[in-house]
């Protein structure tokens, strides 16, 4: 019998391989992220002062929406071809398998978002001093989005039209992340220290990392029943 760690690794590798085979789908949430952000200058004003002020909030709201839209693929195909059922039946802890899936999902959706964000920051005239904070908040925040979102996806995976419902369930739970992350970037842009907000995000991350896999596993079992 493989150890828990190697099970985790096998599942991570499996999901990453699957994602790699469907590369074109991965680009869609990123494209969405970029398009949403480029709508704001068009809709509000191209003036650098205005954009600078709203940049942290806009980038983070777009990141929330992009993360939420990409969630749908987390369990969908495994649910449809029955592999999710096999995972639930296996002797391995479902929470562990779920965690591996969420990690793989974050690596292919969250990580590119972080790499892309500085360029979008430039588009919105975000001061350079705030760039590292933006990256740090995204690095701490997007895993929370994936972990919390996984609970919502697990609850709605069995439904035919879960998409809109998912946003209704998940977005209110994202609010604390938005507040701390956008707040930190705002403060950094004004030259204030941001350690406090980053600690809060770290605390939220460890909380969701420890609790969300269990809730997700329970939700998966309910959706399968």
């Amino acid at each position: 019998m493989a150890s828990d760690f190697s099970t985790f690794y096998i599942f991570l590798k499996r999901d990453l391989t699957l994602a790699y085979r469907h590369r074109s789908e991965l680009a869609n949430p990123l494209l969405f992220f970029v398009i949403v952000i480029s709508l704001f200058p068009l809709g509000i004003s191209p003036e650098s002062k205005v954009l600078q002020g709203i940049a942290p909030g806009v980038i983070w709201v777009a990141a929330l929406l992009a993360a939420m839209l990409s969630l749908d693929s987390l369990f969908r195909s495994d649910f449809e071809d029955g592999s999710l059922e096999q995972m639930a039946l296996s002797s391995r802890s479902l929470s562990l398998l779920v965690l591996a899936k969420v990690l793989a999902h974050w690596l292919v959706t969250g990580l590119p978002l972080i790499l892309l964000a500085p360029f979008l920051g430039v588009l919105l005239f975000l001061p350079e001093s705030a760039m590292w904070t933006l990256i740090a908040t995204l690095a701490l925040g997007t895993p929370i989005l994936s972990l919390v979102g996984a609970i919502g996806v697990a609850l709605t995976v069995g439904l035919r039209r879960g998409g809109v419902l998912l946003s209704l369930l998940v977005l209110p739970l994202y609010i604390p992340v938005l507040i701390f992350a956008a707040g930190a970037v705002n403060e950094a842009a004004r030259g204030f220290p941001v350690a406090g907000q980053l600690y809060f995000l770290g605390a939220l991350l460890s909380l969701s990392l420890t609790l969300s896999p269990f809730a997700t596993a329970a939700a998966v079992r309910i959706s399968l029943s």
């Binding site: 919390v148 609970i151 919502g152 609850l155 069995g158 739970l173 809730a215 329970a218 939700a219 309910i222």
Partner: peptide, 13 residues
């Protein structure tokens, strides 16, 4: 199923 799913959501809330 609906009750159990919404119970999980309420607890997460």
């Amino acid at each position: 199923t609906a009750s159990r799913a919404s119970a999980i959501l309420a607890l997460v809330g």
